[in-house]
């Protein structure tokens, strides 16, 4: 048996620890060790975006991050997007706009969209398409995904103005 490393990290705001081999990716540990299977594997070489998570707020493809790199970092996955029983406005917008078919790319798109709209509350269509070009979807042709992101952006801006 290969020796394992003890890693302490924060996932979706909760402190977590796990043992991993040096060769294991963050994706593998999220899915197989921590049972956070909402993060999907599509290619395992950083080209499809299905495994997109945040690492200290930055978008990463978790298949290209070693699990040991999670030490002391903050990780955000699809499981942390909804607030308790309430869907995030982005999740609602994806449902209301029929922005998913098979759904396997959806977690990656939602995690990426959340980062986009936190940074840029009013992105243009071109900007949305550019930002989400890291995430492949083969079912929808992207039309309804772009519309869902636009709808979510509008909703989130409205919520912010109401709060202000």
């Amino acid at each position: 048996m290969r020796s394992k490393t003890h890693i302490q990290t924060t996932i979706n705001g909760e402190e977590r620890d796990f043992l991993c081999e040096p060769r294991q990716s963050l994706l593998e540990v999220l899915r197989d060790t921590l049972n956070l299977t909402g993060t999907k594997e599509g290619c395992n070489d950083g080209n499809c975006g299905s495994c997109t998570v945040t690492l200290d707020g930055r978008l990463v493809t978790s298949c290209l991050v070693l699990a040991v790199e999670a030490e002391g970092r903050e990780i955000g996955t699809i499981e942390g997007v909804a607030q308790g029983n309430h869907l995030h406005p982005i999740q609602k917008a994806f449902l209301e706009n029929a922005a998913l078919q098979c759904g396997v790319c959806t977690p990656g798109f939602i995690v990426a969209t959340k980062v986009l709209l936190e940074k840029e509350p009013d992105p243009s269509e071109e900007r949305i398409r550019f930002f989400l070009a890291n995430n492949l979807c083969r079912c929808t042709g992207y039309d309804k995904i772009v519309q869902a992101v636009q709808a979510a952006a509008l909703n989130l801006r409205g919520t912010k103005e109401t709060q202000a």
């Binding site: 197989d32 299977t37 993060t39 999907k40 699809i78 909804a82 759904g103």
Partner: peptide, 17 residues
Amino acid sequence: DGADKVTGRALYGADVQ
């Protein structure tokens, strides 16, 4: 099946443990 698919709860074949 929408709520399952936007929250990551939907279980695909590779998610079987």
